[in-house]
Amino acid sequence: MTDLGPLIPRDREMHPEPYWPDYKTSVARSPHQPLLSLESGPSEETGPTFGHSRFGALDNNLILNWTKGAAPAVGERILMHGRVLDENNRPVPNTLVEIWQANAGGRYRHKKDTYLAPLDPNFGGCGRTLTDENGYYQFLTIRPGAYPWPNRGNDWRPMHIHVSVFGHSFGQRLITQMYFEGDPLIPLCPIAATIRNRSQLDRLVAPLDMARSRRLDFLAYKFDIVLRGRRQTMFENKLEGM
């Protein structure tokens, strides 16, 4: 296998604070000890691959996939689309993108969600797809509703879709959340606030994309995702301890 070079070290300043008291659950679940840093090796630079054959035709269509196409979900029909790129602006082709979300009323189809908003019998809330050769992906879904959660006195999550991306190596593994342009709950959310760098938080907010919407059918939101890149170098000097 070709050595593509080590991964670019993760810039933790661009990521959320692990310990963020306003997000109460983080208080007991964030490490006190500093992380150990290591140049990436084979364990971080390789990763799982997934063949097209294991995916069903409706896997990226959340409007229809829970009922296997029998009946559509209720809600604001949207196309969520974008590209997966690396830090060097190269597309990441054939990589797995998975999403999950609440229904239009903010209720998840999970045995632990007991919010009084009803389930939609035609909506499951789960999708997956592989990016194409240009790193492009798309999902058809409904816009999820905001929902309350027991944190501080009266906290509500903004509308969001959870996104999980693999990239081509285990060290690129990323889970994040996509928010929607103009949602007034974003600045109130303690989970969004874990990202201190405001311009980084803005990168999780998907703009309305009328050019990709379809008349009389769905609106569109664009969400590009950037994964860690590889450091291409001519000089690989043996480091201390390696």
């Binding site: 993760r10 661009m14 990521h15 983080s26 790129l85 959870h162 999980s164 889970i175 980084q200 994964l227």
Partner: peptide, 17 residues
């Protein structure tokens, strides 16, 4: 180059997805 997309918690319902 552009920075990596920031992470967010997987939340309590990560298993759905």
């Amino acid at each position: 180059h552009q920075p990596e997309t920031p992470s967010q918690t997987a939340g309590p319902y990560v298993h759905i997805g």
